[in-house]
Nucleic acid binder design. Structure first.
Lengths: 262, 262
DNA sequence: TGTCAACTATTGTCTTACAATTGAGGCGCC
DNA sequence: GGCGCCTCAATTGTAAGACAATAGTTGACA
């Protein structure tokens, strides 16, 4: 099928150099266009090298690129090789989350912006969740609420439970596309939420709002759920603001102490 | 700094095999933890190989993995090497779009589900866009509306303009995190929208709704904008439904014709 | 002083070889 | 004859060395 020198010619002509990139692109295209079906085994590295007219290390580098994108997985041994991998929604969600986390950390997004986006996105799921939640989603939300009431919970665990609660809410919308978009976004913001110290008072307020949100979803009161979510958003922003102010104060205090000491 | 045999030891102990994966993870962690700053040059492949106690091809495969995730970029020649790359929001958006497109195509998401998610997500941006749009966003939306009124536009171009309109709307929300989340989702659904044949009648209705949406945003009437968006969503779903029914009919017709012919 | 050419450092690719892993088929044993 | 073990072969993973391509640098020359 593939002309032996296609990749070479394409790479040389397109002047993009990097034979391995060209080969990776060709294989990727073949997968995306459906010429290679899920689970199908690619030719061995040696065969690919012969087909493309390049050496085995070059093919390997191309395969590594694809493996890094979870498009294939490789197995050693007899009957081993590279296999086309179907991206499950969960895989996509994990990759999206990693990407979002990366974006948030590398671009130093401030808490306010991230928080705004997070709750705005979640609001997109609320009407659908109110309309067609299943009992298992409500149960999961309820379970997380119960966990959040345990005063012995560490801040990290409380935050994780918070995320789990909201992911359950998003999944209650029953739309897989919405799920992986929103869940990845919410989970990606966990590191930012983790910087908060959750006092018992804050926990009580948050958990109470979670309970109200759960109740509103349960009785399919969309407006009420949106209202509670909005209150939760504003309270979270308030906490973030307080944390920032507190930190600024501490820095100022330390600076003043240093100045006095010196 | 890095112990020479860290990667080897880690790989052997963790039993995950694949030295190149272990090395890639170590470098990735170094980047994410900020030990390697943006723009900084990594040691040359030979040095890395010596440091990690592995061969150069192994290091290269690790670097390919990172390059595939856009974490580094490499240059040849003197003063060349691998450089830590800052992921811009646009980079993330492009990657997210690619990922979403992949997810939609590989999981064969139906038009209805994708459409529902798309408009639900977009609704998340509308209140913010209404509250703090800039004149440039309104102008861009207006420009796309004007383009959509050209009857000579191809279906593909109309669809592209439609996407551009909604991306402008999302960007009007003025939240970069929201922007790359939503814009990638909207753009990823373009292939699905492209399967529609936009008759003049359909175009007139869609463009009219776009105009109403633009007007509502301009006067900062959030409720009205949401209402228009909802109408747009329902109309798009309607079109999708019609297309599906039409296709089913044609298939049935062809089947009948074939039966008659045979 | 300006320009050009050789040099050098670095990545990209090729070649060959060996190690590790895993499935399969053959062999012996029960 | 059936079952289990064992060797074998196919395949990927890793290694080492060499050459090609590229681009910045430096030195020589006009």
């Amino acid at each position: 099928m593939d002309r032996p020198t296609d990749a070479r010619a394409a790479a040389r002509e397109s002047r993009c150099g990097d034979l391995s990139v060209a080969i990776a692109d060709q294989i990727r295209t073949a997968i995306l266009e459906g010429r290679l079906i899920e689970g199908e085994r690619l030719p061995s590295e040696a065969e690919l090298a012969a087909n493309f007219g390049v050496s085995r290390p070059t093919v390997r580098e191309a395969l590594k690129r694809l493996a890094a994108q979870n498009l294939i997985r490789t197995r050693r041994g007899a009957a081993g090789g590279a296999f086309v991998r179907k991206l499950s929604f969960d895989d996509v969600r994990a990759q999206m989350q990693a990407l979002t986390t990366l974006a948030l950390s590398m671009n130093a997004v401030d808490f306010e912006t991230a928080c705004e986006a997070r709750f705005a996105l979640e609001a997109a799921a609320v009407p659908l969740a109110a309309a067609r939640h299943g009992s298992e989603h409500l149960a999961r939300m309820q379970a997380e609420i119960a966990r959040q009431e345990d005063p012995a919970l560490s801040d990290q665990a409380f935050c994780a439970s918070d995320v789990a609660f909201h992911v359950a809410l998003v999944e209650a919308a029953g739309n897989p596309v919405l799920t992986f978009q929103l869940a990845s976004a919410i989970e990606a913001m966990q590191p930012l939420m983790n910087m908060i110290t959750y006092t018992q008072r804050k926990r009580a307020i948050i958990t109470s709002l979670h309970r109200k949100l759960h109740a509103a979803i349960a009785i399919e009161d969309r407006e009420r759920a949106l209202d509670v979510l909005d209150r939760l958003a504003r309270y979270t922003l308030e906490i973030g603001e307080a944390i920032r102010a507190d930190r600024a104060n501490r820095h100022a205090g330390r600076g003043a102490a240093a100045a006095e000491g010196g």
